[in-house]
Design a protein around this nucleic acid. Structure first.
Length: 908
RNA sequence: GCGAGAGUGGCGGAAUUGGUAGACGCACUGGACUUAGGAUCCAGCUCUGGCGACAGAGUGGGAGUUCAAAUCUCCCCUCUCGCACCA
């Protein structure tokens, strides 16, 4: 009621509001006494004013009570699985969620009206760090915080009127869900798809905890500010690299995916074709294996670089004069962020290990360095450096005064090392390359690889940039990894019958974000399932949350299945997802992991397909300026204030810096809460506005300017309907030949058909909801000039056709509003079950063509012509055009270009 | 740094296949209705010059292809996303 009052006040001002209150009280009395809701001339009595609050709760209740969106498999009926990326339950939905889920809802409702059996589920990606952080900050349990957030966000989503099958809701933090993930892990372990190896984590010595990359700020711990070091731990991995080639090849077989996504995935997998070459370490049994794509330059290799983490580094330096400096360098590197993006930004540096290796092609002694740009994760962790033909190696050689030998010369030129200002990376002919001198370098790639293969020095090989997926997390709020470490039997999988390994909820979090699991004896101490040893201990690492989101779309098909991950027949019916929608920021990791997981499921015989998502729509980010205060860090919009005095923090009064425009995120505090919009204008206006503001794939810098326009548009339709109701009377919607109409009413009929055409293709082919909405706006503008009772006898019928079409076309966008109007039009309730309107091809035809006249490509005139005019006639009319003539003058006409039914360009 | 994308009036955007740049909406201006208006209806609204008819310029900047370029090609600038432990 308060909301209603507020809207009234906004719309009508004070005096009419008082009148409206009286009217409303009268109506409510009438409703209570049952006198209002009855048929009136074939349609329902209509409220004069659009009242979103009342309408929206009415229809949301109706959808819920009539189970409007619950679905099940129906053999023989065409299905459509529409999925939006499920949210992390961070607390409140933000405007980015509204955008994502509204886009999905439009498509789901549209497909339903097209006759599909539409699966449209929703759930929660509920494990993750923010719950732990919130638990520490508020002294609660991550589970309590997460479930409270889920309840809150579910009711917010329901307020938006989204057509979800809520009977299929899942939360990944529930044992019923992660039980099957643990089951799958064990299967993968049995198949060798999961394995353990040592790798590095960010470690804070002070908090004694592992840090996520996000928790490292400029090399320091975000909690205590102490330096972060790299610590080696035994961790679990999935062998995604086994599928590198398959994932890569199928990027080109995903026609429903945006090319930018497949292209990013291809680059991420990063296939390189080259050779592996073995370099013997001088005076030692050791061999260094390198991967290179430039084996044609092997004669120019003058030194070797090993990653600081390379196992040979300490051994090579041992006992040499360089040992101390090598140890110091390795130590220094272990303090640094070694991620790809960081390494690329450091200045290249390295130290000599004191050892040499032998170039197998020419016997050259090459000094072995350890260098910061060599990555243990890529290739073999060793780089054969050819300074003459690689810029990075060139810079390094100049810095440390190392030899440079030219081995490729541009055709017909002589190039020597002292001529080089920078590396020569172009094509050419081999020199200084023994038997290969004079060979083109392209051909030499093959020749040298073959030669090495014959001599046992190396071989052709392929390398990928993609690395195996590390899934171990030393965290509490995640799915426990179901293995047992037994001192006698080693790694033992938890028997299937013991699943799920439930995360012990009684555990509180330890200070500093450290996982309590390793210190919780009740969890950790267990019996070995193989030998019965009492000294066995449970794995205390939990799984990366990306694991949960890599198969949830399959779980939705049979979310309550308790005999397996899913019911195979349900998955065969619903999968693959026909349309997946989510933020472009997931273009690589989540989507690649999901593709990988589906391949694993196929390999295990659980599904019959390997690509989970047929079509993908990557929605652009909703961005906003972030605001940060020198003392308080990032601020919520409500925590700072702009005045003449400047933009200040409300907590401390200091001047804030208005940051970059960034993706909305809770950590940046630049989120926009849709609640105010919902309260002020209702769900339909909020939905309409988020769709109208920009096409889905485009980034959207948030601004509320324009939201009034959407609300006005709905009011405008409401008023039109209210004014037309009596005047249309009981006329049936016009469905006759367009030729039986003339004048305004003929134009309106054409406009309706054109609008149906435009809205349908915009939704179906382009997802351009903004232009679909503006097409309906144009139609409504055209309807405003028409009186259904005046003119030809067909007028009322055309008007009813127009009005019903507007309501049907808008129903996926503003469903509550359209349900209400549909009922008012005297239609059976449930517009979501109606068929999508269709247009007639012959009704789209215009009566006249507009021809544009250009002279030398510049617009000079235009004229109308009958649709059946032939090209020659149009040409003559253009040449005779009075407004074009002065620009032709007496200059000779060189050429006349005619674009059929559109344009004439006269070239003089 | 590497990979991917984007840039059009005061603002959000439109122009679907190289063929009328600025649809639709916001903001703004003027008018009508009105006791009143932050409601509604009608009209105007890229910039420069001109009373006007009209003319010239114009899609981040620069070059090019073409009868014709927001759209294609090359170079440059700016912004956004991802970079493997945020989700």
């Amino acid at each position: 009621m308060i909301l209603w009052f507020y809207v009234q006040y906004r719309v009508s001002g004070p005096i009419l509001t008082v009148l409206a209150i009286c009217q409303r009280l009268w109506q409510e009395r009438a409703i209570m006494t049952g006198r209002v809701i009855k048929k009136h001339k074939g349609y329902m009595k209509m409220e004069e004013r659009y009242n979103p609050g009342q309408i929206e709760s009415k229809w949301q209740r109706y959808w819920e009570e009539s189970n409007a969106f619950l679905v099940e498999e129906e053999a023989g009926r065409k299905k459509y699985y529409l999925l939006e990326m499920f949210p992390y339950p961070s607390g409140n939905i933000h405007i980015g969620h509204v955008r994502n889920y509204t886009i999905g809802d439009v498509l789901a409702r549209y497909k339903k009206m097209q006759g599909f059996n539409v699966l449209h589920p929703m759930g929660w990606d509920a494990f993750g760090m923010p719950a732990e952080n919130a638990a520490i900050a508020n002294n609660t349990h991550p589970a309590a915080w997460t479930y409270a957030n889920i309840d809150n966000m579910r009711s917010q989503l329901k307020q938006l009127g989204l057509s979800y099958d809520w009977g299929r809701e899942i939360a990944t933090c529930r044992p019923e869900y992660y039980r099957w993930e643990q089951w799958l892990f064990i299967k993968m372990l049995e198949k060798g798809m999961a394995y353990r190896k040592e790798s590095y984590v960010n470690w804070c010595e002070d908090c004694l905890t592992v840090l996520a990359n996000e928790q490292v700020e400029a090399g320091m711990c975000w909690r205590c500010g102490k330096p972060v070091i790299q610590k080696k731990l035994w961790q679990w991995f999935f062998r995604i690299t086994d599928y590198a080639e398959d994932l890569l090849v199928h990027c080109d077989q995903l026609p429903g995916w945006p090319e930018k996504v497949t292209s990013m995935q291809k680059n991420w997998i990063g296939k390189s074709v080259g050779a592996e070459i073995r370099f013997r370490v001088a005076d030692s049994e050791d061999v260094i294996s390198v991967f290179t794509t430039r084996q044609d330059t092997v004669f120019g290799a003058t030194f070797m670089c090993l990653a600081p983490e390379h196992p040979l580094v300490p051994r090579l330096a041992e006992g040499t004069a360089q040992e101390a400096s090598v140890t110091a360098f390795v130590e220094k590197m272990s303090q640094q962020d070694r991620s790809g993006k960081a390494v690329d930004q450091y200045e290249k540096e390295g130290v000599f290990t004191g050892a040499f290796c032998i170039n197998p092609m020419n016997g050259r002694r090459m000094p072995i360095y350890t260098a910061n740009f060599a990555l243990m994760e890529y290739g073999t962790g060793a780089v054969m450096s050819v300074p003459a033909h690689d810029q990075r190696d060139f810079d390094f050689a100049k810095k440390y005064d190392l030899d440079i030998i030219v081995v490729i010369q541009p055709e017909g030129e002589t190039l020597t090392s002292d001529m080089l200002e920078e590396a020569y990376t172009g094509e050419g002919v081999l020199v200084n390359s023994g038997p290969f001198d004079g060979t083109g370098n392209r051909k030499a790639l093959d020749d040298i690889a073959l030669h090495m293969e014959k001599e046992g020095i190396g071989k052709k090989t392929v390398s990928y940039r993609l690395r195996d997926w590390g899934i171990s997390r030393q965290r509490y709020w995640g799915a426990p990894i179901p293995v047992i470490h037994c001192p006698a039997c080693g790694i033992v999988p938890v028997p299937e019958s013991d699943l799920p390994i439930v995360l012990p909820e009684e555990a509180g979090l330890l200070e500093g974000g450290r996982s309590p699991l390793p210190e919780l004896d009740a969890f950790k101490q267990t019996t070995c399932p193989v030998c019965g040893s009492k000294n066995a201990r449970r794995e205390t690492d939990t799984m990366d949350t990306f694991v949960e989101s890599s198969w949830y779309f399959e779980r939705y098909c049979s979310p309550r299945c308790d005999t397996g991950m899913f019911d195979p027949s349900a998955v065969e019916y619903w999968m693959p997802v026909d349309q997946y929608i989510g933020g472009v920021e997931h273009a690589i990791l989540h989507l690649l992991y999901s593709r990988y997981f589906t391949r694993v499921l196929k390999e295990l015989g659980l599904v019959s397909f390997k690509e989970p998502f047929s079509r993908l729509l990557t929605q652009g980010m909703v961005t906003k300026e972030s605001v940060s205060c020198p003392t308080h860090g990032y601020l919520f919009p409500s925590e700072s204030e702009k005045s003449d005095d400047g933009h200040r923090c409300l907590k401390c009064g200091r001047e804030v810096t208005v940051g970059r425009v960034e993706k909305m995120s809770k950590s940046k505090k630049n989120v926009v809460d849709p609640n105010e919009l919902l309260e002020q204008y209702g769900a339909d206006t909020t939905r309409l506005f988020s769709l109208f503001a920009a096409p889905p794939e485009r980034d959207l810098e948030w601004s509320e300017t324009g939201v009034e326009g959407g609300f006005r548009f709905l009011n405008r339709i409401w008023r039109l309907a209210y004014g037309w109701m009596d005047r249309i009377g009981t006329a049936a919607p016009f469905d006759g030949e367009p030729d039986s109409l003339s004048g305004d009413i003929r134009d309106l009929n054409r406009k309706v058909h054109q609008t149906i055409h435009k809205v349908t293709t915009d939704i179906e082919e382009r997802y351009h909801f903004n232009t679909a909405i503006s097409a309906v706006m144009e139609l409504v503008n055209a309807m405003y000039g028409i009186d259904p009772k005046a003119g030809a006898p067909e007028t009322a019928g055309v008007c009813r056709f127009a009005m019903e079409s507007v309501v049907l076309l808008l129903s996926p966008f503003v469903p509550h509003f359209c349900e209400e109007l549909w009922e008012t039009l005297g239609k059976p309730e449930g517009i979501h079950n109606m068929a999508w309107p269709t247009y007639r091809e012959e009704a789209l035809e215009k009566d006249e063509l507009l021809i544009v006249v250009q002279v030398n490509g510049k617009l000079r005139s235009r004229f109308s012509v009958a649709t059946d005019a032939d090209d020659e006639q149009i040409k003559q009319m253009a040449l005779a055009d009075e407004r074009a003539k002065p620009f032709i003058g007496d200059k000779p006409i060189k050429k006349v270009i005619l674009v059929k039914r559109k344009l004439v360009n006269i070239v003089v």
